[in-house]
Simulated scan of single mutants.
Amino acid sequence: MQLTALPALDDNYIWHLAAEDGRWLVVDPGQAEPVLAFAGAAGPPEAILLTHHHADHVAGVDALRARWPGVPVHGPADPRIAGLVDHPLGDGDRVEAGPWRFAVLGVPGHTASHVAFHGEGLLFCGDTLFSLGCGRLFEGTPREMLGAMDRLCALPPATRVCCGHEYTLANAAFARVVDPDNAALRRRQEEAIAMRHAARPTVPSSLAQELACNPFLRIDAPAVRAAVAAREPGVEGDRVEAFAALRRWKDGFRA
């Protein structure tokens, strides 16, 4: 199995997953061109998977279907992309595509209908979880996003986290302000800097790495709680309010 992060747009990744026999699928094609270039003369993908309705994750679908008519598109049951998705999904559904099997997790927060795909040791999480960060709350509530984080935390630690953007360095700058004494976080930042200097993606990371370093997954850690409470006194006793304060802090953060 070969997993490839295809750069697209300004900082998106389209995920390409291929089996040894040549079968493949693609996740969140915000552009068709990187997929078409990478696929070359390959046959059609087994499926297109979509995590949410934002254009930078779905805008390439029509062109891919024009190249490969009939390719099944699995994505959230959301009227905004009903014309793209022929297999609408919700929490608890399953996707079978070629040799791969994925559980569908409802992870609202970034958008109301956001889903993630977990299976084969992989987590395709779109804009819900990033390396060292999480998505902005465009449609959901802090409680919903925290619930999504809690759910993802329960997955196997070896799970590879395949997110939708190259945000790791920006997220690291914020995380180091929140949790400056975290040695694992410092090492992850150094690793990410070296990867970007070498023009390599910083993802996928592992869930174990995120659990050790990502402040949004560490909202119950004393160091993170103390940093949030120092910025917004009074939120330390409620983990939802603490999470909301952490997200507000990140929204206004400038390195």
Rank of each mutant, 00 (worst) to 15 (best):
M1D: 13
M1P: 08
L3T: 10
T4M: 12
A5P: 06
A8E: 00
D10H: 14
N12T: 14
Y13K: 09
A18G: 01
A18T: 12
D21M: 08
G22C: 00
R23S: 12
R23T: 09
V27K: 03
D28I: 02
P34K: 03
V35C: 04
F38G: 03
G40C: 06
G40V: 04
A41N: 12
P45L: 09
L49W: 03
L50Q: 01
H52P: 03
H52L: 05
H53T: 11
D56Q: 13
D62C: 08
A63T: 08
W68F: 01
P69E: 10
P69H: 03
V71P: 01
P72G: 06
V73H: 06
G75V: 02
P76L: 00
P79S: 13
P79Y: 09
R80Y: 04
I81D: 00
A82F: 00
A82K: 06
L84Y: 00
V85E: 01
G90F: 04
G92C: 08
D93W: 01
V95M: 07
E96Q: 11
A97R: 04
W100G: 02
A103T: 07
A103Y: 04
V104N: 07
H110N: 13
T111N: 02
S113D: 11
H114M: 08
V115C: 06
F117K: 05
H118F: 11
G126A: 12
G126L: 03
T128E: 02
L129G: 05
F130P: 03
F130H: 04
G133L: 03
C134P: 00
C134S: 10
C134N: 05
C134T: 13
L137R: 07
F138K: 14
P142D: 02
R143G: 12
L146E: 04
L146Y: 03
L146D: 08
A148I: 06
A148N: 07
P157G: 05
P157D: 05
A158C: 11
V161I: 14
C162R: 02
C162G: 04
Y167K: 14
Y167W: 12
Y167N: 13
A170W: 10
N171M: 04
V178E: 01
D179G: 05
P180L: 02
D181L: 15
L185Q: 08
R187M: 10
R188W: 10
P201V: 07
V203E: 15
S205N: 12
L207M: 09
E210Y: 08
C213R: 08
P215V: 10
L217S: 12
I219L: 15
D220R: 14
A223Q: 15
R225S: 11
A226Q: 14
G237C: 12
V240W: 03
E241S: 14
F243Y: 15
A244E: 12
A245P: 07
R247F: 10
R248Y: 11
R248L: 12
K250W: 14
R254I: 15
